[in-house]
Amino acid sequence: MLQLNAETVHTCRDTIKRLSGEDVSRCFQCGKCTAGCPVAIDMDVTPNQVMRLAQINGRERVLASSTIWLCLSCETCSTRCPADIDIAKVMDTLRKISVAEGYPSPEPAITGFHRLFLASVEKYGRLNELELSIKHNLAIMKPTKDIRLAVGLFSKGKINPFGGKVKDRERVKKIFAESQRFVKVYPESIEREAE
């Protein structure tokens, strides 16, 4: 059961506001975000429920949801929200909090893909499309998943097996090393690290 009390009921809302500037308490649960979301049907918690849970500090449920990972950042919801909330930005912020707080990913294929994508960029400075898809399909134990597609692409000369590379790769490595997850201060994680 979700316990509501004066000390914590606004915590999740406040964190989101501090990190993204978006105020989820503006949401009045009209449901338009869910209505237009192309992947709402795939989510375990609908977008308007995410907003509601954020309003009442149901943070665990939100941060462990598949929703935040299934969100495509298509901005359909943000464009149409009658309360002018950038819901996509809230989803984005929740993803980062979820990672920062070490929640396991309910969508490993998606989170794994992002990791591999970034690994490729970290290594070459640019994306190696071929390497990415091979590694991804290996990781999800379906190495032959897109083989038909790959052969087709290859025969059309669309795959550049070596990819492009940035000359100044040192700088790219530095960028990866120095970047922080949040632009704004994220107190919860600092406390966590201090512990």
Partner: peptide, 19 residues
């Protein structure tokens, strides 16, 4: 000597990296 813009993957992981 352009680099990858990071697309949604950088964006979903780290604000500073994406920027």
């Amino acid at each position: 000597d352009w680099n990858c813009c990071g697309a949604s993957s950088a964006h979903e992981t780290s604000e500073e990296l994406a920027l």
